[in-house]
């Protein structure tokens, strides 16, 4: 029961303990803010409904600080249903145990473009061949373009800027067989795929299909498979059958650093 958590006495914050609570303006106050819509016409009953939801979410006491009707909507509720939008503030009873938090921390150093080039040149002694594409029906090349295009992303130049990386961007709606064929023909060291469209988990399905096709066609000699997109969970790589998953906000420098880590030998060849 969440209520039991209160009894362990940790209120976290500056004390250096491993248990923390959300911070509004006082250590341990547990304050959070959330917003949501209920398919209920505005009024006292709607506010009561919002409070009930907040309470079930662990927000107690909760304050409905704003509610407003948003007219007739659509979808399953039918077009005569009115909706109410709420903003709720309140204190959550939950505690966060930092010791129990598991994240994938970057297992490799972040390198500058100069360092990436130097590592490839001295330790691999040939250029690294990188192939990028959007697969399936996904026509949103914005992700792969941000990583590969010279222009880059978030102030970092894209992989095309790296002298020792030989980059080809196949663009949008490349079929998996086409991508396998291109990877083989170009002797790609790494294949980068971005997926933006997530409707009905298309990004996950497409990624599994990609991994299976490479496994079947090339087995152990397959290139490094890297996927990325705003809705991917970086912890899913093994589950999806790829080597690495990048999530929202990944920059070209992070990808280049990972490629060096994964594909370039640690030491110069003797």
């Amino acid at each position: 029961m969440p209520d039991d958590d209160r009894q362990d006495g940790h209120f976290g914050g500056a004390g250096g303990g491993s248990v923390v609570r959300p911070y509004g303006d006082t250590t341990g106050d547990g304050m959070v803010q959330t917003s949501f819509t209920l398919p209920v016409p505005p009024g006292p009953k709607a506010e009561g409904a919002a409070l009930q939801l907040a309470q079930k979410m662990g927000i107690e006491p909760a304050m409905v600080v704003h509610s407003t009707g948003i007219g007739s909507g659509g979808g399953a509720a039918g077009d005569s249903a009115a909706f109410t939008f709420f903003v709720v503030y309140g204190s959550v009873r939950h505690l966060v145990d930092l010791d129990a938090v598991q994240v994938e921390e970057r297992a490799y150093p972040l390198l500058s473009p100069g360092e990436v080039n130097a590592a490839v040149k001295t330790r691999l002694r040939r250029s690294l061949v990188v192939l990028g594409a959007c697969i399936g029906t996904d026509a949103h090349t914005v992700g792969i373009d941000a990583i590969l295009n010279l222009k880059g992303f978030a102030g970092e130049k894209g992989l095309e800027y790296y002298r020792e990386l030989q980059v080809a961007n196949l663009g949008a709606q490349v079929s998996v067989p086409e991508l396998v064929h291109a990877a083989r023909a170009r002797n790609a060291d790494a294949v980068l795929v971005s997926q933006v469209v997530t409707q009905k988990d298309a990004h996950l399905r497409n990624t599994r299909e990609l991994a299976a096709a490479f496994r079947e066609a090339m087995g152990e000699s397959r290139p490094l498979l890297v996927v990325g997109g705003p809705r991917f969970d970086p912890a899913m790589a093994a589950d999806l059958g790829v080597d690495k998953v990048f999530g929202r906000g990944t920059t070209p420098g992070e990808v280049a650093s990972y490629l060096v880590h994964a594909l370039v030998p640690e030491e110069e060849p003797a």
Binding site: S72, G73, G75, T137
Partner: peptide, 21 residues
């Protein structure tokens, strides 16, 4: 119904985005 709701809320032009691909 979403387009009609949007029009009632003030939209003058409704665009129906096409399916990707």
């Amino acid at each position: 119904p979403q387009a009609q709701a949007a029009a009632r809320a003030g939209a003058d032009v409704i665009a129906v985005i096409r399916s990707t691909g």
